Amino acid sequence: MTQDEGKLDSERKLIDDERKHLEGLLKDRTNFYLVFASLFILGTVRTQGESFAARPFILLVGTIASVLIALAVWRTHRLVDLALKDITQEKFQHPYRTYRESIRFPPNANHLMIFVPLILSLLFLVLTIQEFFIYSSKHIQLEKATTTATCNTVLADENQSWMDTFLEAVKLQEPRRGSK
């Protein structure tokens, strides 16, 4: 083995070790995201009957966390992609190059998996927006109901006051009728 071959082999090993590390990191982050998303969906379903005021804000916080984790997964995916491109250079003669070239369909699994956190984050965003619309409509309905109830209470109080005055007047009239 010549000095150039030794240097090339050493460089290939470094890139391969880094690729393995990055693929492990991608796997861990993807698994963490899937656990997070599952628990978030479960928590969202469990709060269905709870106070409607807290629900949109819970969804908003979960959506923000989902987007941040999805960005971390996406960045790691890009690093893995770069490492895989490096080891497929002709000078390294890595077996991955032969494997990759022999399989055309389906495309690279990493490229397919990156859509999962993005799609779920978009779903969470849509649910959050929907929940804010529901919250605002319920809030408006509650305000209208409160205003109507307040108006009805005022009218009832006025009617009761008028009725009390009328009954008082009738009571005052009764002794006069009896004296005739």
Rank of each mutant, 00 (worst) to 15 (best):
G62A: 12
G43K: 05
A72S: 08
A54H: 09
F57G: 03
E143M: 14
L39F: 09
I69F: 04
G24P: 01
T44H: 07
K7Y: 06
D17S: 01
H94D: 11
I87N: 02
F52G: 09
F36E: 02
L142K: 10
T146S: 12
A72C: 01
N152R: 12
E131C: 12
T150A: 01
A149Q: 02
I134L: 02
K91P: 02
K7N: 12
R177E: 00
Q130Y: 12
P56S: 01
S38T: 10
I119K: 13
K13D: 06
T98V: 13
H21E: 06
F115Y: 02
L155V: 13
A54I: 05
E5G: 10
L127C: 14
K180T: 01
W162L: 06
K13M: 05
R75E: 02
K180W: 08
G178Q: 04
H94A: 07
A145L: 00
A53I: 15
Q93I: 12
D164Y: 09
E143V: 15
V80Y: 10
H21K: 12
T2N: 12
K180S: 05
G178P: 01
P107K: 11
V154A: 07
A109V: 05
A83Y: 04
G62I: 03
T146M: 04
Q173L: 08
T44R: 09
L84I: 02
E11D: 15
H94R: 04
M113Q: 12
L84C: 02
S10G: 15
F132V: 13
L142T: 10
R55P: 00
L125C: 08
N159E: 13
F57R: 10
A65L: 09
Y135H: 06
T147R: 15
T63E: 06
Q160W: 14
E5A: 15
A145H: 05
P95D: 05
I58L: 03
G24Q: 05
E18Y: 05
V61D: 01
L25H: 11
I87H: 07
N159P: 11
F36K: 07
H77A: 09
V170R: 05
A83D: 06
R100Y: 00
I140Y: 10
F32P: 09
E101V: 10
V67E: 05
F40N: 06
T30E: 06
N108E: 01
W162E: 15
E158N: 13
D16H: 01
S137H: 01
R104H: 03
R97D: 06
V35A: 02
T146V: 10
Q141W: 05
R75G: 06
L127E: 14
F132I: 00
R97Y: 00
R19H: 02
F40R: 01
Q48H: 02
S51L: 15
E18G: 04
I87C: 05
T128H: 05
F92P: 03
S137Y: 09
I129T: 11
D81Y: 01
V61N: 00
E143N: 14
Q93Y: 14
H111M: 04
E5H: 03
Q141F: 10
P56A: 09
S38N: 14
V154M: 03
